[in-house]
Structure formats: C-alpha cells, structure tokens
C-alpha cells in the first residue's frame, strides 16, 4: 500500500511522577499517511490494549489546534517536524516509511512529568491567576465605536491572544523560560484600553509568579518563537520587558 507506512516508535514510559522512567520501542505496521499524529498514537494504544499492555498516556482534547492540551516532543522538536501546527494537527505524511520516531514529554523543571508523556502544566494556570485577567465590570455590550482601538493594536493584541498555553516555548527553551507565554498573556491585555488599567500590576505579578515557579531567565535565543504553533512573536517579550521595567521604575 503506497499510502501506508510502517514505523518504529521509541516512546518515553514513566509510571508516575516518582518513577525513573525508560524508553520502550514499539512497531506499527500500515499506518495511513493521512492519519494525524494523535490518530497514530490511538492505533498504537489499541495495539497495546489488544496485547494486554498498558496504553501510553498522552494529553489531548480538541484535536483541532485550539485548546492547547496536546504536547509531545517529537524527533527533537515540540509538536514535531511541521511548522506552526500543534501535535494534533501534525500528519503522518511528514514521516517516511520505516522511520524511527522518538516521542518524549516536555522536559523542563517547571513541567514535571506526571505519567508517560503527560506533564503537569499547572504552573501556567498559576501564572494566569496572578494577573492574566481584567477585573472591570463588563456591563452591557458597548457600542462598537465607543472605545476606538487602532487596527495595528487590535491586530497585535489578537496575535498575542492566539497563544493556547501549550508550553512548547518552555519545552524548546535551553533556559526553561516561560517568557513567550507570559509576554503573550501580558501583551494581549496591555494593548487594549480595557487591560491598561491594571497593566503595571499585571506585569509585575505575572513575572514574579513566573520567577517563583522556577522558570528560567530569557536570553533571547528566539527558539520559542520558532516552535510556537501559533507563531507568537518575540516582539511580545520586548513589550513585556518594557511593561515590567516601566512599572518597576515608577515604584
């Protein structure tokens, strides 16, 4: 079958957070190149269940690239060899017949492994809870032109808001830094009038929480931007630096 490929998978298996973990190899015959990477994982798990073995645990939810649940570090890159897509949108046509695919969890001190390929990304929620919101009362729907926002700001805010919180930026960063994520969350609010009220406090609190949770110091390697499935730009990191520094200097 020209449309099918056979694969060897080298998968990280780890029983729980305390377990040391190990790699295990599995063979898959006749995987359709039209299937998605997660469908391939489903096929693997079905095979494992049929053999009476424990299936591989991995994160996923929407499977359409919008929820940020899927992860997986595939052949040296978070979200695999394709650019600007999440693992759930990665297709098997990106792989060759007979290829060995290494599948690992995100590895970073801020994201401890829970089981197999699932890591604990609660740290991101904790950072959001530290200030990634606006606390104005919303009231009724405002008039469209009551609060003018420039097209440039609206576009940049929208681009920053496209961050789905997957953590690929941390996974690829040699410094284990969460700056791309935090800068996206600070930027999409800082650019809009509704977010300006709490801008200074937000930048300070979110950065403090990020540091407290043990993420690294950004040295601007730019790897995060390359691996971000949503193409969030490191210009947001410059904005976060600006927001944070001016907030601190005002104190």
């Amino acid at each position: 079958m020209g449309n099918n490929i056979s694969l060897t998978l080298k998968v990280w298996r780890q029983n729980d957070a305390q377990d040391k973990g190990r790699y295990e190899s599995y063979k898959l015959e006749a995987v359709s190149v039209d299937s998605s990477f997660l469908e391939m994982m489903d096929i693997l798990n079905e095979q494992l269940v049929n053999e009476g073995k424990e299936p591989v645990a991995f994160d996923h939810d929407c499977r359409e690239g919008i929820c940020g649940m899927c992860s997986l570090y595939i052949n040296g890159r978070p979200h695999g060899p394709d650019d600007d897509v999440t693992t759930c949108q990665l297709h098997m046509r990106k792989f060759k017949d007979g290829e060995t695919i290494t599948i690992e969890p995100w590895r970073s001190a801020g994201f401890p492994v829970i089981k197999d390929l699932i890591v604990n990304r609660n740290a991101f929620d904790t950072i959001i809870a530290a200030g990634g919101y606006t606390s104005v009362s919303t009231g009724g729907v405002p008039d469209a032109n009551a609060l003018p926002i420039s097209k440039i700001d609206a576009d940049e805010a929208m681009d920053a808001a496209s961050c789905i919180g997957c953590g690929a930026c941390v996974a690829t960063c040699k410094n284990g830094s969460a700056m791309l994520f935090v800068s996206a969350k600070v930027s999409h609010l800082a650019l809009l009038p509704q977010g300006k009220v709490e801008a200074a406090r937000r930048a300070k609190n979110m950065v403090a929480k990020m540091d407290e949770l043990g993420f690294g110091n950004c040295t601007n390697t730019g790897a995060c931007e390359v691996e971000c499935p949503k193409g969030v730009s490191i210009s947001n990191i410059a904005r976060l630096n600006r927001e944070f520094l001016s907030a601190k200097f005002k104190d």
Binding site: G76, R107, V113, N175, G222
Partner: peptide
C-alpha cells in the same frame, strides 16, 4: 546557573532540532 536548573536534569534523547536559532545565542 539558574537557567540550567530551570531546564532540569532530564535531557531530550532526540536532542534539539529547532531551526533558525543562532549558535552564538545558545
């Protein structure tokens, strides 16, 4: 030192193949 700690002791078996990252920056 802090960044090495944040990266953690577990290394990727498949290395890092992220493209377009300047060698000097790392």
């Amino acid at each position: 030192l802090q960044n090495n700690k944040a990266r953690g002791s577990a290394k990727y078996a498949s290395g890092n193949k992220t493209k377009d990252v300047m060698w000097a920056s790392k």
